[in-house]
């Protein structure tokens, strides 16, 4: 009996979906819009995260060593810095490496290279590039470097220059901007998700409002609430699934286009590749949201008219 009931409910859900073509069409439109907002938010947050990440990546502290500093001393200091918990990464560029880089950078600039040749030996300094885990941690790292007396050895200065204070203002402002950008992003996402969910719920409620006479007839014929409600939920489920499929398909060409646009200022990021590799996850989120929106809003909307 239960199976017969389920079979009948699913069948009449399908038939209603098909016969109320216009109603189904409008519902699908609304749910699709909402899912478009969801998907856009997902990719927007990926985009911003990648930008913020790139900006964060550009910030570092450079420690320039005196040309007299020996390599073992520098490496020892590197080890101490790496052991700090705020530090994510330390890069060592030796004097020889710095010279090579310099030559490659100026390979078309004859006069500079000639000038370099006229000097005795290598005038360039060894550098440690220090990256913090969070931009706000740079000042504590800088403080550590300055207080540390390892920076000088046997009264001869090991470190010639730390370029933190020059960058301090920029770094501070940047970390504030990053912070508020993240907060604003989360607030915007919550706002848009809320607005689109409310719009969908109300639209489906209005659509089902047109069926209220039908529902009252069903009640008079003696149909149980379950038997009246579930075909609507099945139709709602179909709205959700179809909307999700439309959204997932439509985003392929959209991302392809967006990718071309952003390629100019974000070379590392490929949204189409991202979509392809994370398709399973995105599919689950979008289809899940679609099913939830369609089915739950239908369920709640019908409930109003069942109280006779």
């Amino acid at each position: 009996m239960i199976w017969v009931g389920i079979k009948r409910v699913i069948k009449s859900g399908f038939i209603n979906f098909w016969r109320n073509g216009f109603v189904s069409f409008s519902s699908i439109m609304v749910v699709t819009m909402t899912l478009f907002v969801f998907t856009s938010l997902i990719f927007l947050s990926i985009l911003t995260n990648s930008y913020l990440g790139q900006i964060k990546d550009k910030v570092d502290i450079n420690v320039y060593f005196a040309t007299t500093a020996s390599e073992p001393d520098i490496l020892a200091l590197k080890k101490t810095i790496e052991s700090l918990e705020q530090v994510s990464h330390v890069e060592y560029i030796s004097r020889d490496q710095a010279l090579k880089d310099f030559k490659i950078k100026h390979q078309d600039d004859e006069s500079t290279l000639q000038g370099l040749d006229e000097l005795d030996g290598n005038p360039l300094q060894a550098v440690l590039n220090i990256k913090a885990k969070e931009p706000s941690q740079y000042s504590s790292i800088a403080k550590f470097l300055e207080s540390k007396n390892t920076l000088s050895k046997n009264d001869s200065t090991l470190v010639e220059n730390i370029n933190f204070h020059k960058n301090k203002q920029i770094i501070d402002r940047l970390s504030k901007i990053l912070d508020s950008a993240t907060k604003l992003g989360i607030a915007l996402i919550i706002f848009f998700v809320l607005v689109s969910v409310i719009i969908t719920f109300n639209t489906i409620r209005i659509i089902i409002f047109t069926s209220r006479d039908e529902i009252s007839v069903m009640k008079l014929v003696g149909a149980s609430n379950r038997y009246i409600r579930w075909p609507f939920v099945v139709s709602g489920l179909m709205y959700g699934i179809i909307s999700a499929l439309i959204t997932l398909i439509a985003f392929y060409p959209i991302l392809y286009y967006v990718n071309k646009v952003i390629a100019n200022f974000s070379p590392g990021l490929n949204l189409v590749d991202y979509y392809a590799t994370n398709f399973g996850q995105i599919f689950l989120i979008i289809t899940g949201s679609g099913i939830f929106l369609g089915a739950v809003s239908s369920y709640l909307a019908v409930r109003r008219y069942l109280r006779i």
Binding site: R8, M218, V221, G222, A223, S224, Y227
Partner: peptide, 11 residues
């Protein structure tokens, strides 16, 4: 048929 289904009659 709907009235009969509602009353739990068989197919």
């Amino acid at each position: 048929a709907f009235a009969m289904e509602a009353a739990g009659r068989t197919d």
